[in-house]
Design a protein around this nucleic acid. Structure first.
Lengths: 243, 243
DNA sequence: CGTGAACTTGAGATTTCTCAAGCGGGGTGG
DNA sequence: CCACCCCGCTTGAGAAATCTCAAGTTCACG
């Protein structure tokens, strides 16, 4: 839960009263095994999910059987704020054993109306989510395989770092190379070769699920990465007279 | 302006009072020539733009000089609701001569707090926007060139149709093949060949900027198109007791 | 230890890109 | 009013990136 609050604070300063409320909003908590669907396209959820622990993905399946992973969600992320106002147009699944916290839509509605500061922070996270989709669009459309892989690693490092889940330049990434491929529009074979190329150049290393960025500056360059689109700490539209 | 209201109504029933307010929200209107930037990455707009006439795109430029078009916006679309709460992380440009209406953020803030029905409809359009990015992600990641082109044509037809800008199965699409390529992650040469292939199969025709879908069922199949992600008329989270 | 999933490697096949050149039509200046 | 010009479209052909298929290999786990 603290990760969620930390995440929210990246999208708008919160006050003590807000924090007290946020500590009470999570109703039930559910443990989910690896590779389980948490919600499916067409579902009509009555609560929103927050990743407390583990790694979650959103994905679409095409009629051809191909899978596109739309996003990865790390602890602190609210996964399906969209389903608060619109139906689900994709699936949500755990990639590792995961702990998921739920906030009922009723409670959410209440918070948004009565605590506008929290409401705005929530909407900002939704817009930041959308910004990540746009940047990935630029990756799939106009970045080479190497650039895509490097870019994704940079992004994940920044996001892990923002919720305190990176130590130095290392972080845990429990996605398989096949999953990375489905997220990047590449075959898993090519992801493998690309990762090895980056390792051979001394930009990254990994051992099991533990990745280390060995040359941050160069990796950013290779991925054409600029963290602006993550909007971490980018807060606008805060009425100055409020309080 | 009527197109904007019509667009909003696709995302939540509005009442007479709402309509009256919406008719007054647009402050200034600006005429923009073709191929002009309307806003740039890093800008801090104080108003939101609505396309009244013409065709608008959002795009990113990578340091390599490549362009990714993120979205096309047709009359009725609000282009930069995101900049209401976060900074702009991409550029916005006219593709044709365009008429743009502006709503100041102050007015918008006021409307959202005082007319929650309109506020929710606005947020739904923002979420639907995000849904389009996700579907395009699936296109760029896992659809073939033919599937991408067919899918985009299906989407644009549905969107034009939803605001009353399609006659039968025909609609005006004033993007160049090069622009379509930058939106679909393809070279303009390949877009050209792909369009011709679809024409030779009798699925579409065009003359200048006027496109006709000759075989809707088959084009949908070829594009693996399902309109669910557009969320047209998909309204949830409307408190039933409200009014 | 045995097993299976994930990772690795090799090599030919495919899709799409890039480069290059020609075509066509609408708008404009003489 | 007409010729010219430019932008966008079209076509061809070789090049490049990435995919697919296939066969190991490794490592975590039971």
């Amino acid at each position: 839960m603290l990760k969620f609050i930390r995440h929210l604070e990246n999208y708008g300063a919160l006050e003590r009263a807000d924090l007290e409320i946020l500590k009470t909003v999570v109703g039930r908590v559910r443990l989910v095994a690896a590779d389980q669907d948490i919600a499916r396209e067409g579902d009509v959820p009555t609560e929103c999910s927050i990743v407390l622990d583990g790694l979650v993905s959103r994905y679409k399946l095409l009629p051809t059987g191909k899978r596109q992973i739309l996003s990865f969600h790390i602890p602190g992320d609210m996964v399906d704020l969209q389903a608060f106002l619109l139906g689900l147009d994709h699936n949500i699944a755990s990639l590792t054993p995961t702990r998921v916290g739920y906030i009922s839509h009723a409670v959410l509605n209440d918070i948004i109306t009565r605590h506008p500061r929290i409401g705005r922070a929530l909407w900002r996270t939704a817009l930041a989510d959308s910004a990540i989709f746009r940047e990935r669009l630029a990756s799939l459309g106009r970045r080479s395989a190497t650039q895509r892989v490097a870019h994704l690693l940079c992004e994940l490092y920044c996001r892990y770092s923002a919720v305190g889940l990176a130590q130095g330049y290392s972080f845990e990434l429990s996605a398989t190379q096949s999953e990375l491929g489905d997220a990047l529009g590449l075959s898993y074979v090519h992801v493998n070769r690309t990762l090895q190329a980056l390792r051979n150049e001394g930009l990254i290393t990994w051992r099991g699920t533990s990745f280390v960025i060995e040359d941050w500056q160069e990796l950013k360059l290779r991925g054409l990465f600029d963290d602006g689109y993550l909007h971490i700490g980018d807060v606008r539209g805060e009425p100055t007279k409020e309080r």
